[in-house]
Every structure is written in C-alpha cells, then in structure tokens.
Design a protein around this nucleic acid. Sequence first.
DNA 1: CATCCTTTGAAGATG
DNA 2: CATCTTCAAAGGATG
Length: 558
Amino acid sequence: MPQLNGGGGDDLGANDEMISFKDEGEQEEKISENVSAERDLDDVKSSLVNESENNSSSSDSEQAERRPLLTRADTESYEKTRDYFHEALRRQQDGGFFKSPHYPGYPFLMIPDLTNPYLSNGSLSPSARTYLQMKWPLLDVPGSAGLKDSRSPTPGHLSNKVPVVQHAPHVHPLTPLITYSNEHFSPGTPPSHLSPEILDPKTGIPRTPHPSELSPYYPLSPGAVGSIAHPLSWFMPQQGQHMYSIPPGGFRHPYPALAMNASMSSLVSSRFSPHMVTPPPHSLHQTGIPHPAIVSPAIKQEPGGEHISPSMHAKSPVPPKKEEDKKPHIKKPLNAFMLYMKEMRAKVVAECTLKESAAINQILGRRWHSLSREEQAKYYELARKERQLHSQLYPGWSARDNYGKRKKRKRENKPDSKPEDFSIRSKKQCVQYLPSEKMCDSPASSHGSMLDSPATPSAALASPAAPAATHSEQAQPLSLTTKPEGRMHHHFSLPTISIPIGTSGSQPSTPILTRPIPFTSLHHSMLSPPSPFHQAALHSHHALFQSQPLSLVTKPTE
DNA sequence: CATCCTTTGAAGATG
DNA sequence: CATCTTCAAAGGATG
C-alpha cells in the first residue's frame, strides 16, 4: 500500500532491521544490501527465465533492474534516516501506541508523525517518492503521553484544526487506515525533498500545504471537524484508489453520521469529510470520499462515473442505505495481509521488476511471514481498526452481502488434491512464479526488525490491549506455520528451518514460535555464502536467539 | 471482456 | 466446533 512508503513500507520491516545494523556501519550495510540485492535480482531473473517465458524479456529485465537498484540506494539512505526517527519514535511509543489507554476505544484520530526522513535531507529518488506517497502519517492519538515527543510540538493537531507542522511526515505503518491507495504521486506533487510543506509566512515554519494545493483528496471543509487539511494530504493518492474504492463524485456525505466519538469523527472527517464538497467533476481523488469500501455496483474499482444512490448523497445517516436497486457494493475491510500488500506491493514491484500480481503476491506472502511479530502486529492492529471502522460505518453490512458478487471462483479441485488434480489444473497453477526467494523476500529486513524487536517493549505491542479479537489475532502471527505447500511446492516437501521466535528475554510467557523459512530462503541466506548483508543478519539472529537453537524441521507431508 | 492466478486473513456457510 | 468457501487487492496472463 501505499502508504508507505517504500520507505515507509519499510518502516515496518526492513528499516527496522537496518537500524539494528547501524552500529556496524551504514555504508557497509548499504553496499552489502545492494550487492545482495543484485544477487537476488539475478536470482529472480533467472527464476523468471526458467519459468519459461522470457527470452526477450531477460535483456529488458536487466535494464529494468538496474533502474530500481539505482534508486534503491537513494531510497535506502532516506530510509535510514527515517529509521532513526522511527526508532526513536518507537522507543517512545513503546507500546504506548498500542497500549495507549485510548486504545480500547480505538482512537481514530491520528496524527502525523513528525519524523520525516526525506525532509531531513536530500533528495528523494523517484522510487522513494513513490513509496512515500503511500504513507499516511497519522498516528493514533494517544491520549496520554506516549507520543508526546513527536506530537508535542503541536497541540493543534488534536483539535484538528491545523495540521501540525511536521517536519516530516513520516508515515506510520498504521496509516493505511486512511488511505491506502495510491499509487503514485502525481507529477505535481512536490518533490519530497522539498517536502510538501510550505513555510508559514508568519512562523517561518513549514506548514502543510493546503489541501487544495496538494491533494484534492481531502477537500477542505471549512468548519468542520474535518476541516483539517490532513497534514499528509499531499500524500494522498492521486490515482485514486482508496482502500475501498470510492466512486468519484459520489458520496457527498460519505460517512454517515455514526455515533462516533470525537476521535472517530476526526478520523472520518479526515478520510471522508462530511463536508467534502463536491469535487470537481472528474477528479478521481477529490471528492469527498466516502468510505473506500463503498463501491458502486457498476464499477468496481475504478472511479468511473457512476453515481451513487441518492440516499447516499444526501445525508444518509445510516450506512448504505439499501435502496433496493443499487445498493452500493461495500467491500470487505482489508485484513492485515491485504493491508501489508497494499503497502508493500509497489516496493516489491520496484525491487523485483516483476509485474505479475501473482508473483508479487507470492513474494509478499513470504515477506509477510518473515516479518517480525511486532511488524505483523501493526498490520493486525490496523486491520482490526479497519474492521471496526467498517463496522461502524456499515453496521448492517455482512461479508455475506458480497457473496456471489465476485464471479465465482472455481475451486472445484481443491478438495482432494490428488496428483491428478494438479495436472488438471492449468499448468499455470503449478508454476511457481518465484521459485526462489530472493531479495524480494528480503528476509533480511524482517529479520533485522525481528531481532531488535524483542528488546523493545513494544513487543507487547502485539497490542494486548486490543479489546476484541486480539487473542486470536495476536496468536496468529505468532503461530505462523507455513501453509501446506501443496500449491506451490507440492512436488517435494521442503525442509524448513524453524526459528524459535519466542522472546526469550522479554516475554517468558510468550509461546515459542516457529518461523518457517522457505527452503529457497534458507538456501540463499544460509546455505550459500552469505552476503555481508546476510551475514550481518545471521549474526544478529544468533545473537538474538543464542539460547534458542535452530532446529531443522521437515515439513509434514500432506 | 471476464476470469484466473497468487497471497493471508476474516467471516460466513456447512457438516 | 471444525472445516470449507468467499472475498478482499492487484495486474499480467489467459480463454
């Protein structure tokens, strides 16, 4: 998703780990990473080639690869900077974020994070920019002190009136709550290094640009709660896709007035301001955006010109009113992984030069597994909030409502998967898009973060406080076990290494988790001569888990 | 043009 | 209660 940023994306993962390595030397790290990246790319490439298809493309791909690599350096430097901030923030939050007293209530009000890497220094590469767009710098407002540092500067944000001046809007991982989408900044977007901020004549302090200037997404709404231009407004996607695609023009009153608390209202307002004025006719983003989940029946995702039911237009306080005919299609809230995908997809695409979503998704799936608990927890948390918001917005909505809307997937053969089935299935299914994991999987990043996470109290971040679902949700990430590999690796059982992830030190009570590592990864990082980067990662790993030996586990055959 | 593919997770449906 | 299905995103590939 967008949010993040690539850079941001990494906030969750890669960056974190990077931090841990910093001690050892940034430069080396950088270099090593590039090296490994290249290697990975080669692998990917080769894998792709193996797949068969690209003869011609191989040459192209090389060129393409280079591009990403080049930008990568920039991105990394930027990320590093960001990481420092991030790390600092993390320490402060320490749990505060998730644990904040407000938490239970799900504070929807978010405030932008102040740390913005790119502002700090130089230029942002295009790719970096791309990533940045995704981030949404909002943070939950902890009622308490938790984030004080970052937010203290501007109390104003609480009121929503004025965007805080942020130095750099860094995006919080949870930001997606608001807008995920987005693909890229529009050309018009201010260069990141310049930052969207504009200096306030009075204070001389940078201020967030007026929404009108930056992103139409959030039209100004005078007067209302939502009147605030979102500080990150400039972040908003231009292309329109919100998390839930929103029909353009439609929803003037996007969010029905639900019972919402102040914080919630702010959130909503920022996302979909009730005041959103009708936007320009064709703009994608501009309009008042209703909840992204609403999609008009006619169109699914792209903003088209459809209109929404009149009821929505007006002020229908209640969610989608089902007008008999056209009840807008309300999409399911995104789950943690989906949020992660949205956020990271662009990054992965940039790194790998792969375009096929199926392949990208495989990578993302692996990356997801390699994320640290904390990192995943962020997404689970975000997803939970998303669901909650969704439920508030559309109280009567049920996932069942969408059943059958999607063309039915023919999953007929799934059940007994006899070998025959495989053959029956199109050969495509059997094809592993990305046979080997590579940098795309970038285990490294996650490992790193994983490593340092234990140290941080944030480990608890798993958001114990979360009222609902927490248990299961938290547990999930922990108990990750690779799914039956039937689909992808059915040909042979892959050995995996299970790394106990339990927090030996900090949380005794935490069950030991095993994190399966795909064979390919294993091969890459452990079996073959590890790149410096990998070595570092391994090193860290050992340090972290010294007490917990690695165990080689064979996957259960299915 | 509609589906498939691919991933994980949530929720509904089914047994 | 356990298991199975759908759908959420995304975009190239496929029929």
